[in-house]
Design a protein around this nucleic acid. Structure first.
Lengths: 207, 207, 207, 207
DNA sequence: AATGAATGAGACTTCATTCAT
DNA sequence: CATGAATGAAGTCTCATTCAT
């Protein structure tokens, strides 16, 4: 009796996952274009090729969809950035460089989504806000650790790791937030190279 | 006969200015709390202690209010930041330092407003967007020039002035955008000092 | 003491008349274009080159303006049509013909105004309605009398004068009401000639 | 699988038809009383016993409702008048007489609606206006043909069919437009008889 | 599980009317 | 006498959410 129940349960969970993904992708597409408030639930349903009623079986309300969209985006960051660090070996400089490089690349791939998180975060409930703050910290934690390691090892000056990571984050996000300006004279690769040079210069041990 | 006419005209212009200011202040207060879309025109009217109809005598529509609010904020920046540089003498390092310091101080004084510009800019029409992009460039132009001067004088490395200013801007804005995190362990002064140290380190001429 | 008072009174009455006329002309122009409800009092004020407040010194409210506009139009008809008959001599056929001809010409000259009376009459209060009904009867009364005279004299068949005048009225108004169609293939003169021929044929004594 | 699909589709189409009819009847009732502009969408919803929102599922906007109301009225005319001619045999006099008689009867049955079309047509967009002009021509076309036939057969004088139909139309509409006056001394039947007599007299062959 | 018709609150905006100057 | 700034009620339309099928 347990087996079929679980099988059914699995199938159900799989459908739930699929449906939620459909909705999130549709909502993300729409919000990137015109923001949360201009997106109607009917439009989400159309884009997701399902009925409005069905969305409400998988999400409590419209704000719940927003929260899920933003969390979804930030989870992508959290999954991809640390993973890149694992592949970067032990050298703090390399880990930091790789972290920044990957971060910028992910931001570039999800530029509209990145801007979206800045645009709509304040619309969330306090709980939602807490969740996304936690996710951001999780995402950057491995880089933070790399900076601490580098400081300890003496390859970096005695800088505030928290602040270095903050700068690195703003710098990566900056590529999306100020893309209208930056893209006029820089490619992503140029941006990464030059910013990285300045970033490393800013924390190299005093000569 | 010209005199009274002018007097009347002056009184009228003064009232227009006062009314617009009333509306903008009310709208800014409300938007900082809950965003553009959650702010009803009735709420603005109540907050500004006037009738809804009157708002429409001074602003074409709701989006026009938003544009004016954002422009108002950015004009404050444009007026205060360059003014601080004028008082900083000729030394590029001093000018850059002062620019950054003042920028951060103004951001801190208008933290909610700064966040607001990031949150609602995309809601604007293309014309509004152009206007605010222009204002941002105007605001930072004197700093950009200071960097160029420093590079030319050899007190800075041969860095991309555009990019340095971009970093400086993101850094100042970052104080508002990530205040929930930064304020847990830093005061504004500490933030300015440490960021300034890294900023200068990042562009000091190679040993 | 009576003399200057009367002089003042006369000057005042003259101004009142002038102001009212300004308003009525402006309102008529605007209503002909887009109807009573789409016409704002501010627009009337602008068109009449005076302030909104002043309109309210000469008219009780917006509907009062409408009533006056329609009455004004109908008074024109009442003044011009009977006057033409006075000049037509005693022959009933001539009087009828002239009456119709003039009626059509006045309608043509005030086509938009004629349509306006059909469009907006129902908007009036019952009193206003009574007034315009009375004016319409007054306008056509001389023609009605001409028909009665003609019947009595045996130059017309024993027709219902009331109905003949009704037909004549609808026919004249018809030039304005169906101008979109009639003007495609008839000039006003052709319309008058042909309609007059049929009108007279319809009431000539049985051969 | 096709069967249930069609059944569903049929049920849906039926509901759409029913809803639209509900709205149109409610709106017609209200407009006949107080005109298009004085009719609020909330009032239509109340009268139609549905919610405002639902009206907008079946009509694009308020003007769309007006257009549909007028078209609905004119389609009734177009359906009933020509049908009566089909039953009137081949004799042009009989066809013309029947056409006029039926026209007047339909006008009488829809007196308020007839007045409504004169009152509110100008409120329509150019497209709506074109549509109703076309409907009016369609409605009268069979009568126009009967007149042409009569002229050709020599039972009518060589009159302008277009103009005869125009007169007939104005005459039928006149029963509604001037009902306040006509009904004081005539029944519908009397009106039809007398007008018909004059109409035929006006086009009988000379001598 | 899935649909989408239906609801109704609430948003923006206009405009007739008043009244202090 | 004349102005036009100010009011606020009322209108149109949208859209999140529910629920019968």
């Amino acid at each position: 009796m347990a087996a079929p129940k679980t099988a059914v349960s699995d199938a159900k969970q799989e459908r739930v996952r699929r449906r939620r993904r459909q909705v999130l992708q549709a909502a993300t597409r729409l919000m990137q274009v015109s923001g949360f408030h201009s997106m109607s639930m009917q439009a989400v349903a159309d884009e997701a090729k399902m009925s409005v009623g069905l969305i409400y079986q998988y999400f409590g309300n419209k704000e719940d969809v927003l929260r899920a969209v933003i969390v979804d985006i930030l989870e992508d960051f959290r999954d991809e950035v640390p993973a890149a660090l694992d592949a970067a070996g032990a050298d703090p400089v390399k880990r930091l460089s790789n972290g920044f490089r990957v971060f910028c690349q992910v931001v570039d791939a999800k530029r509209a989504a990145t801007v979206l998180t800045y645009r709509e975060s304040k619309t969330l409930t306090p709980e939602g806000l807490e969740q996304i703050k936690h996710l951001e910290l999780e995402t950057t934690e491995p880089i933070r650790q790399a900076v601490r390691d580098g400081v300890e090892a003496g390859v970096f000056a005695d800088v505030d790791a928290e602040l270095v990571v903050h700068n690195l984050l703003m710098c990566a996000h900056g590529w999306a937030l100020k893309h209208w300006h930056l893209s006029e004279y820089l490619t992503l690769e140029q941006y990464i190279e030059r910013e990285l040079a300045m970033l490393l210069a800013s924390i190299r041990p005093a000569g």
